[in-house]
Design a protein around this nucleic acid. Sequence first.
DNA 1: CACAGAAGTTAACAACCACTAACATACGAT
DNA 2: ATCGTATGTTAGTGGTTGTTAACTTCTGTG
Lengths: 196, 196
Amino acid sequence: MAKTDRKTQILTEATRLFSESGYDKVTVKQLADACGITEPALYRHYSSKEAIYDAVLDSISKRLNYDELFEQLGKTNDVEVLLKSIANHILDYFSENQDVYRLLLYSALRGHTKSKQVYQAIRGTYVRFLYTQLDRLYEMGSIINKNNEMTARCFIGMVFDCALGVTLWKGFQGKQFDPPDVIANNVPIYVRGLTS
Amino acid sequence: MAKTDRKTQILTEATRLFSESGYDKVTVKQLADACGITEPALYRHYSSKEAIYDAVLDSISKRLNYDELFEQLGKTNDVEVLLKSIANHILDYFSENQDVYRLLLYSALRGHTKSKQVYQAIRGTYVRFLYTQLDRLYEMGSIINKNNEMTARCFIGMVFDCALGVTLWKGFQGKQFDPPDVIANNVPIYVRGLTS
DNA sequence: CACAGAAGTTAACAACCACTAACATACGAT
DNA sequence: ATCGTATGTTAGTGGTTGTTAACTTCTGTG
C-alpha cells in the first residue's frame, strides 16, 4: 500500500474511532488494528497520537463546502427559502458526516483549543452568513427589526441541537422525528415571527 | 470529619473535576488530592471510580426542582410568559450549575447510558411540560395549529444550545451575548410565529 | 545486481492508573 | 479500660498505554 493511501486510511479510521469513543478511549493499538497494521507502523506515518488527532481536525475543517450554498442563497428575498436551505444544509452535512459533530463536541468539551476553533469556524460561518442575509432582508423591509446576530445564532443553535438529537440521542428522546419534518414544522414559526 | 461530610465533599469535588476534564482524564489521585486525603481513603467511601461517577449523576438528577416552575406556569394563558419563564428557568439552572451541563454532555458523548438517561430526564421534563402547555393554549385558541411536540423540542433545544454557548464556548463565539438579552430578542419571534 | 529508503515487524520500556494489602489511629459505646 | 468501627496512611501490584529501539521485508531506480 502506498504511503499516501495508508495515511488516508489512518485518518479515516481515526475519525471514525475518535468520534465513536472520544480521544481518550481510543488506544493506538485499536487504531492500528483497524488499519490492519501494528502500532509502531502507525508512527511511520504520524509522529504521535496527538498528531493524528490534529490531522483529523484539519481534514474535518476542510471537508465543508459552503460556497455552493452561499452563492445559491446570496440573492434570495424569501426568508423561508433562506432559513430552510440553511437548516437543510446543516442537517444534510451532519447526517452525511455523523461522526463529525460528535467528534467536535467531544473534543471541545475535552478543552481542546483547536477543536473549539474548528467547531466555531463551522458554526460561525453559518451564523455570519445568516445574519448578513437577515440584515439585507431587513433593509429591504421584508422582516421586522431585530438583533439579527442574536436571531441568527439562536436559529443555528436550534438546528445544531436538532442535528445532535439525530446522532447523539438516538433512542433516548422518546419519539424519533425526521429532521426534515422538524424543519417543516419550525421554520415557518420563525418566518411568521420575523416577517412584517 | 464525619463520614457523611467526607462523602459529600468527594461528591462535590468529583462533580467539579469530572465536568472540567471528563471522566477519563480525572485520576483518582487528583480527586483524592482535591479532597485532602489519599487514594485508599477514597475507597473507604466509594467502592470504585465508576461508583463515584454514578453517585455524581444521581445527585445531579436530584438537584433539579421543577415543581415550583410548573406549578407557577401551569395556569398562564400567555405564550410569551410561558416561553420566557421556561427559558429563564433553564438558563438560571445551568448558570448556577455550570458544571452540570458540561458533565452530562460529556458523559453522554462518552456513551454512558446512565448519563444519557439523566440528560434526557432533565431535558425531556422541560419538553413534555412545554408541549402539554402548548396543547392547552391551542385548544384555547391562543396559538396556531402546529406539532407541539416538535415545537417544544426545538424551543428547548434552542435554549439548551444557548446555555451551552455560555458555559462551553466562552471566548469562542465572537461577541458574548447575555442569555437574558438573547431570550428577550428571540422569544418574541417564537411568540409572533405561534400566536394566531 | 546492488542498494537506498519506505513500510512493516517483534520486543520491550517507562509512565501512569485503578485498586489493594497491611498497618495506624481516633473515638464512642459498653 | 477495652474493644469495635470508621477513617486514615504507606507501600506496592498488575495491567494498560504511548512510544521507541532494533531488526526485517518489499520495492523502485541507476
